[in-house]
Design a protein around this nucleic acid. Structure first.
Length: 204
DNA sequence: ACTGCGATGTCCT
DNA sequence: GGACATCGCAGTT
């Protein structure tokens, strides 16, 4: 049995880019009845209020993004494209609309449940290699919006074995309106990263 | 392997 | 009316 370190409020109160990097390799844990779902965060993106036109909070507080402006450590769940949910970890102090999007998770426990959530046609890395896929696997929806990640049934842990792949960065995925920034961070080579790095080519 | 497209709530001009 | 922090399916190369 390896000791795990629970992450408290101080962890979440750091700056958004620092938090984004710090979240890589941490475990997301969710209790569903008697079952424990556990996964390792392998890909994230940072979104800030100031000067970041791609952030939901850029134009100010609305009904949808209100959780982003609340205390750090809350889970911000939003509905996108009329179909999918995505989850973020709220960063910065209350009053600032900033968060880190969880884009890729490596399943560690409760994978049978995750498979049921995702459906019978889903195989391998497709279980959780994308933001909406992670939400579906962990059964995260509107009911979890605003929940604290320092609770008893939903929380983060630092694994005892802290060996970490190299952290790579790239432009964020799916952004067109903002000036793009290298605010996507992921663990190099991990199969649960949603889009693998582009292979090198000699000529276009 | 790649490309196009439908699904459609919330917020924007 | 249009865009959007996406995904899965169908059709093509």
């Amino acid at each position: 049995m390896t000791a795990q370190v629970l992450l408290g409020p101080a962890f979440f109160a750091q700056g958004t880019l620092d938090l984004a990097r710090a979240l890589l390799g941490k475990h997301l844990v969710r209790k569903v009845g008697d079952l424990t779902l556990r996964g390792r965060i392998v890909e994230v993106e940072a979104y800030r209020q100031d000067g970041d036109a791609a952030a939901h909070s850029f134009h100010g507080k609305t009904a949808r993004n209100a959780v982003m402006f609340g205390p750090p450590g809350a889970l911000y769940v939003y509905f996108i494209y009329g179909v999918h949910y995505c989850m973020n970890v709220v960063s910065e102090e209350a009053g600032i609309g900033a968060a880190v999007l969880i884009r890729g998770i490596e399943p560690l426990a409760g994978t049978r449940y995750m498979q049921q959530q995702r459906g019978p046609n889903v195989k391998g890395k497709d279980l959780t290699n994308g933001p909406a896929k992670c939400c579906q696997a962990f059964n995260i929806g509107p009911g979890e919006n605003g929940l604290s990640l320092t609770g008893d049934i939903l929380y983060l842990e630092t694994p005892a074995t802290s060996a970490l792949e190299d952290i790579a960065e790239s432009p964020r995925i799916g952004i067109s309106k903002a000036t793009e920034l290298p605010w996507r961070f992921y663990l190099e080579g991990n199969p649960y990263v949603s889009k693998p790095p582009r292979p090198f080519r000699n000529e276009p």
